[in-house]
Amino acid sequence: MSTNKFEIKKLKGAIIGLGKMGLSHAAIVGANPQVNFVSVCDTSTLVLDAFKKYTKVNTYSDYIKMLDKEVLDFVVIATPTKFHYPMVKYALEKNINVFCEKPFSLTSDEGVELTEIAKRKSLINQVGYHNHFIGTFRELKRLLQENVIGDIVHFTGEAYGPVVTKEKGSTWRSNPNEGGGCTSDYASHVVNLIQEVVGHPIKINGTLLKSIYSKGVDDAVYSLLTLDNGISGVLLVNWSDETYRKMSTSITLQGKKGKIICDATEIKIYLKDANQKEGLEKGWTTKYITEFAIPVDFYLRGEEYSAQIEYFVDNVMNKRQGTYNTFEQGLYTDKVIEIILNNAKQN
């Protein structure tokens, strides 16, 4: 397709994998004025035919054919984890910038290789840990950098939600060899958040994995972590808790000068003494996402999903590697998950 010389050149983008996340990415990419959304790839004819019938994008059932045929600036990969390695690798070899869903790869060996290729070829890379695009968690990171609650003595990283609430069903999410299980899937969000906001986990001091409804994989993980800055705390994640309407992730930090409880909607700060610079009173202050939400041009199901794609597209447009959610950061999270799972086996 030729570009009108008076228009700014649009990026050509494609999606592989049209499950829940892939469809959501497709809508966000499709609505982005900087992008010419050219193709999709999935194995479901039901889904592909809907694209054929109602959109102008080209459809493929084989990602190799798509990546061979289309000239692309970037691809979004939203397939089950076990496919990330071959797909990301093939795209990188074709010099295509890659946004890959989380968790990054099935084993850290694969992740190391992919990270090296992306680096060597200077391709823009990003993993879909969307919590970093939630305004409250950004504010949490800033408050910690400003040392608002003093030396941190303990953290709690939690996530609860209703993913597996019955003893039935078997998708790739219930297969431990395909990146299934609560630790690899759900808990990776929390591990990544702790890693980038509080500190990099370097030691696991004990882990309990619990299967509640699933067979063969964990539905909950409780683990004691030590970080590279000496701070220690707890990871508590359970995806079989139907008292939550949807995934709810939070970080609690206990400091010598106060405490912060932060989730995707609120940030609650308790200070022993007022902090004038930050305009925070002594005692509790609650701030809401309404104050911190990252403005987006197209909203589908949370600013974070749009903001992460807008960020990636901007970076590809400007040929600049972003600092949020690099492959390297995704890889580190994969490594921590591996250590947690190994630690559980030892117990």
Partner: peptide, 13 residues
């Protein structure tokens, strides 16, 4: 969520 999904995908029909 559906309106905006269809809007983003361009499935206005």
């Amino acid at each position: 969520v559906l309106t905006d999904l269809l809007l983003g995908l361009g499935m206005i029909d």
